[in-house]
Simulated scan of single mutants.
Amino acid sequence: MQRPMTPLLAALAVASCMGAAPQQHPAAAPTPPPLTVMVADTDALGRVLTAPDGHTLYRYDREDGGTVACVTTCTDTRKPLLTRPGTGLRLPPGIVGTLGTVSRPDGGDQVTYDGSPLYTYAADEQPVDANGVTLHWHVIQPRNVPAA
């Protein structure tokens, strides 16, 4: 014995026979990539860029124009902030600047901020420590979006 068709099923059957297109929902916006760098406030140096784990990021004065000079023994204490090829790069909201990558001579893609390759310092034990500042190594102090 067949069960009678409910009104909803009957309406769907008629619509499908009449060539009615199924209702489509708008596509969801793509999820942005995770933040590549973060921002933290320090007591002595003000606002600085950090790696996602909170460790302070540095730039090396002797690297400009996409040149990577910190290789071999230099990377024993200065760890390059690396990314996988094709990974989306993203700054925190309200921070001005450009993230990019540079190919390292010893392999890998290193994240850059406004063209400067980024590094953490091995002796920074806690997030936002800034023990790696020297004559040629500097923290990255990002620019904020101007107030409207």
Rank of each mutant, 00 (worst) to 15 (best):
residue 88 G to Q: 03
residue 13 A to M: 10
residue 121 Y to F: 14
residue 55 H to C: 09
residue 148 A to W: 09
residue 86 G to N: 09
residue 10 A to E: 10
residue 25 H to E: 15
residue 136 H to T: 15
residue 12 L to F: 12
residue 57 L to W: 03
residue 111 V to F: 06
residue 11 A to S: 07
residue 16 S to E: 11
residue 117 P to R: 04
residue 39 V to D: 03
residue 116 S to T: 02
residue 95 I to M: 05
residue 12 L to T: 05
residue 5 M to W: 11
residue 128 V to T: 15
residue 18 M to I: 13
residue 132 G to P: 03
residue 30 P to C: 11
residue 133 V to N: 02
residue 73 T to A: 09
residue 26 P to A: 13
residue 92 P to R: 09
residue 105 P to Q: 09
residue 73 T to E: 10
residue 38 M to K: 14
residue 71 V to L: 10
residue 12 L to S: 12
residue 91 L to G: 07
residue 109 D to N: 07
residue 138 H to Y: 03
residue 66 G to A: 06
residue 148 A to I: 02
residue 44 A to K: 06
residue 88 G to S: 04
residue 9 L to K: 07
residue 144 N to I: 03
residue 95 I to A: 06
residue 85 P to V: 07
residue 60 Y to K: 00
residue 75 T to V: 08
residue 80 P to S: 12
residue 81 L to C: 12
residue 106 D to Q: 11
residue 117 P to L: 07
residue 129 D to T: 05
residue 73 T to I: 05
residue 21 A to Y: 08
residue 90 R to C: 08
residue 132 G to V: 02
residue 89 L to D: 12
residue 119 Y to I: 00
residue 93 P to C: 05
residue 142 P to L: 01
residue 73 T to D: 07
residue 71 V to A: 14
residue 23 Q to K: 15
residue 25 H to R: 15
residue 103 S to Q: 06
residue 36 T to P: 09
residue 139 V to F: 01
residue 87 T to M: 08
residue 129 D to G: 03
residue 136 H to C: 15
residue 17 C to G: 14
residue 15 A to L: 12
residue 5 M to N: 12
residue 28 A to K: 10
residue 75 T to E: 09
residue 34 P to W: 06
residue 50 T to D: 11
residue 67 T to I: 11
residue 70 C to G: 08
residue 111 V to N: 04
residue 85 P to C: 05
residue 66 G to C: 06
residue 129 D to E: 10
residue 107 G to I: 03
residue 106 D to F: 02
residue 131 N to F: 12
residue 61 D to K: 10
residue 78 R to L: 09
residue 90 R to A: 10
residue 62 R to H: 13
residue 49 L to K: 08
residue 80 P to M: 10
residue 47 R to K: 09
residue 83 T to G: 01
residue 60 Y to N: 01
residue 30 P to N: 13
residue 121 Y to V: 05
residue 133 V to D: 02
residue 116 S to V: 01
residue 5 M to Y: 13
residue 76 D to C: 10
residue 127 P to Y: 07
residue 99 L to F: 06
residue 88 G to E: 00
residue 95 I to H: 01
residue 103 S to R: 05
residue 128 V to G: 13
residue 88 G to C: 00
residue 135 L to C: 12
residue 44 A to F: 04
residue 16 S to W: 09
residue 47 R to V: 09
residue 36 T to L: 13
residue 107 G to C: 06
residue 35 L to K: 11
residue 83 T to D: 01
residue 52 P to V: 08
residue 71 V to D: 08
residue 72 T to C: 13
residue 105 P to D: 08
residue 43 D to L: 11
residue 108 G to R: 04
residue 25 H to F: 15
residue 18 M to S: 14
residue 10 A to K: 02
residue 77 T to L: 15
residue 145 V to M: 02
residue 79 K to Q: 11
residue 119 Y to A: 00
residue 145 V to G: 00
residue 104 R to H: 14
residue 43 D to M: 08
residue 36 T to H: 08
residue 52 P to S: 10
residue 75 T to R: 12
residue 138 H to I: 03
residue 22 P to I: 10
residue 16 S to L: 10
residue 136 H to N: 14
residue 122 A to M: 13
residue 13 A to R: 11
residue 147 A to L: 09
residue 62 R to E: 14
residue 114 D to G: 02
residue 120 T to S: 14
residue 109 D to Q: 15
